[in-house]
Design a protein around this nucleic acid. Structure first.
Lengths: 191, 191
DNA sequence: CTTGCAAACTAACGTTCGTTAGGCAAATAT
DNA sequence: ATATTTGCCTAACGAACGTTAGTTTGCAAG
């Protein structure tokens, strides 16, 4: 990926995050770059290509992060805290892409959609494994793993709806708050 | 609203929820109804009208529910459990509309968008008040109310992503699970 | 100086989009 | 029985869509 392509991608993502993939035209994207719509096709195969690259880049980042966490030998609480921290960091450091990843993946078609779902599923499985670890260790309440993992991910992903880069909370603080919120619900009370 | 209009609206929502508002054409909607695109305009002002009605109907339902909860004198835990239960019921009983409400409201324009956001804000405020009640009563941990309310709502809204009408969990069971998950995180430990 | 290449351009293609105008038939109201 | 309304139709509009073909520009390597 050339420097210029990365530049164009970043601008495209900034435009796409505003109105969503389907409601944004190639002409909108070109306009923000002060170039002709046709010029974009020197860099990208087509419009969906931009979406594909964005979604898969994000999916790769998340997949890598959760695999890393599961490879390291921590206890479950540490694992979950780390997973949430890495997730929040990826979200906040790539906010435009993250918004597109979360909202617009449905516009992928054909095999791209299938592959995306496979990747996303692997990621969710990673979270479920963390929850399972906690149950095995006896520190998390027995619970529907899938339900718990999805609930956790939904809370975490939702931050893109309100996170502002210059807000008063940084990624680590958000991750801490969220982890506390989630964990004290999941953790078995040790009386 | 005539019977026929309601019928067309329901079918439209069923189509819209699949690919999203922006990616769905008026022709797609008409096709599902086995009628001509132009005929839709006997019932709706334009395409956005369908989105508007859908989003505002849902917003009204939610707003009514949370106001009801806040009017009734319950303790905070009961209030939150009831609010979540009502919310889940509204979601699951209007799944098509709910999906559109959650995913596609951004496609509203002008004053409709403003009014929608005002309504949604009132709803979130209702949730925040419940959290506040709990803090006042000393049964919820002191916490950023806005943060807590948004996190709760995100978990609850996310169920539209995996809820299946014929699944093994009904609305009440989902609400119970979610409430337990959320509440034991929010509740102060009484040792 | 020439060649090669990357990145942009102009022009336009065929398609699909949301929407309107006007008419026709059946149901309903007077 | 007649008038009105409702619900749909056919036809078509202009605009916007994603994309392609072919060309020009500017820079870097030979």
């Amino acid at each position: 990926m050339t420097e210029r392509k990365r530049e164009i991608l970043a601008s495209s993502q900034s435009v796409l995050k505003e109105k969503g993939y389907a409601a944004t035209s190639v002409r909108d994207i070109a306009k923000a770059l002060e170039m002709e719509p046709a010029s974009l096709y020197s860099h990208f195969k087509n419009k969906e290509d931009i979406l594909k690259i964005t979604c898969f880049d994000m999916a790769d980042k998340f997949e890598l992060a959760v695999r890393e966490v599961n490879d390291i030998y921590f206890n479950a609480e540490e694992k979950l805290r780390l997973a949430i921290k890495l997730h929040v960091e990826i979200l906040t450091q790539n906010l435009d892409s993250a918004i597109i990843f979360i909202r617009d993946w449905r516009n992928l078609t054909g095999t791209a959609l299938e592959q995306f779902l496979t990747k996303r599923n692997a990621y969710e499985k990673g979270f479920r494994e963390i929850v399972q670890t906690g149950i095995d260790e006896g520190v998390f309440n027995e619970t529907d793993k899938k339900f718990a993992a999805l609930t956790i991910l939904s809370s975490v992903n939702w931050i893109v709806e309100w996170y502002k880069v210059d807000g008063k909370l940084n990624a680590e603080q958000i991750a801490d708050k969220l982890s506390n919120f989630i964990l004290s619900g999941l953790k078995k009370e040790m009386i």
